[in-house]
């Protein structure tokens, strides 16, 4: 059964002053895929993620979602799209320090206003419990470890049941154990049907991907699909991905 695309990128270019970061990118993001974007530093990975997630506006090109070009959206329509249809996970967590764990997770739900406050709190508690943070709900963000913070960020990104989850180096600021916990959470969500687009330079994170896009010099240099992640096949998967990445010049 062929997958349906959730986002279609057409001829997307991004320039800063006279510097070309992305050049005529054409790309489809498929529903329920765990897509990983990799590439050397400065290749344009994060810029691509920012442009297809509407965090930044491309210099030219289209980003089609639900047959609508997101690059033409007004501030109000974009904010509605960000609240309702996407979730975002940052390398540096970007949690609001003056709010508690539960308040941070509830924030996008309260901004969307599609459910009552009680319903939002209920779901936030479910998400936090599912991520192993049930004992930390009323804690201040500053009292959490890096891994716990990133799991709070995952809960926050999922509170409005987004169609796509974007993640920018989610394990970049974490130690190995915490990184694996976060990746396990993402993998679990993907296995439940959540579309994920993740930028990483971490091979362990890339192992979770169904598909890897390799960006080089602002262009898609390689695009390859893999079998869905299976922890018992991890060694063979690592070898396969490593050899492909080496082909790409990793």
């Amino acid at each position: 059964m062929s997958k349906s695309n959730i986002i279609k990128v057409q001829q997307l270019s991004k320039h800063y002053e006279n510097h070309k970061i992305l050049e005529n990118i054409d790309l489809d993001i498929f529903e329920s895929d765990f897509t990983v974007i990799m590439g050397p530093s400065g290749a344009g990975k994060s810029t691509l993620l920012q442009n297809i997630s509407t965090m930044d506006k491309p210099t030219s090109g289209k980003v089609i979602f639900n047959q609508q070009d997101l690059t033409q959206f007004t501030d109000k329509k974009l904010s509605q799209f960000r609240k309702k249809d996407i979730g975002f996970i940052f390398q540096s967590f970007n949690l609001i320090e003056h709010l508690s764990v539960l308040e941070n997770v509830c924030l996008p739900g309260l901004l969307l206003k599609s459910e009552s406050k009680q319903q939002v709190i209920q779901r936030a508690k479910q998400l936090l419990t599912g991520l192993g943070l049930d004992g930390h709900m009323d804690q201040a963000i500053t009292h959490l470890s890096g891994g716990q913070k990133q799991r709070v960020a995952i809960a926050r990104s999922l509170i409005n049941q987004p169609k796509i989850l974007f993640a920018d180096e989610p394990t970049g600021a974490l130690d190995s154990t915490a990184g694996i916990e976060v990746l396990d959470s993402l993998t679990l969500n993907n296995q439940n049907g959540q579309t994920i687009v993740m930028v990483t330079h971490d091979l362990k994170a890339a192992l979770r991907a169904d598909r890897i896009l390799f960006i080089k010099d602002g262009k898609i240099f390689g695009d390859r699909n893999f079998t869905p992640y299976d922890a018992s096949q991890i060694k063979a998967r690592r070898t396969e991905i490593e050899s492909w990445l080496q082909e790409m010049g990793w």
Binding site: S79, Q80, R82, F90, I96, L107, L111, L112
Partner: peptide, 16 residues
């Protein structure tokens, strides 16, 4: 700046 940008990524408009 980063906090405001985060609010925007969470769906807040400029007006909000």
């Amino acid at each position: 700046r980063q906090k405001i940008a985060t609010f925007k990524t969470l769906g807040m408009t400029n007006r909000q």
